[in-house]
C-alpha cells in the first residue's frame, strides 16, 4: 500500500537510510539498543558491513555504532 518497504538492518544496502520500526528481541536486546539510541522511530543510515556475517556499522544521531550481525537481523527498518 505504500512505496516504502521493510527490511532488516542486516539486509540494508551500504549508504541506505531508513527509520527503525521495531526490534524483534527480548528485554536484554531492547535494553542495550535503547542505550545507544536505536529505538523505534529513529532515523539510521547504514555505513558498512563486514564479510562473513560480521558486524554492521550504522550512523544514528550523528554517532557511529557497530552492531553484531545477529542483532542487526532483528532490527526492522522501513527504508526511504
Amino acid at each position: 500500500m505504500s512505496d516504502t518497504k521493510q527490511t532488516t538492518l542486516a539486509r540494508m544496502r551500504e549508504g541506505q537510510s531508513g527509520i527503525v520500526v521495531q526490534i524483534q528481541g527480548g528485554r536484554g536486546l531492547v535494553n542495550r539498543l535503547n542505550g545507544l539510541g536505536i529505538v523505534p522511530g529513529k532515523k539510521i543510515t547504514k555505513i558498512s558491513s563486514m564479510v562473513m556475517r560480521g558486524p554492521v556499522t550504522i550512523e544514528v544521531d550523528r554517532a557511529r555504532v557497530a552492531i553484531g550481525f545477529g542483532m542487526a537481523s532483528r532490527v526492522i527498518v522501513k527504508t526511504d
Binding site: 542495550r32 558486524p55 556499522t57 557511529r64 557497530a66 552492531i67 553484531g68
Partner: peptide, 10 residues
C-alpha cells in the same frame, strides 16, 4: 557470548 555492540568514536 553476546554480540558486539559498540559506539565508534570519531
Amino acid at each position: 557470548s553476546p554480540e558486539l555492540l559498540i559506539e565508534i568514536p570519531p
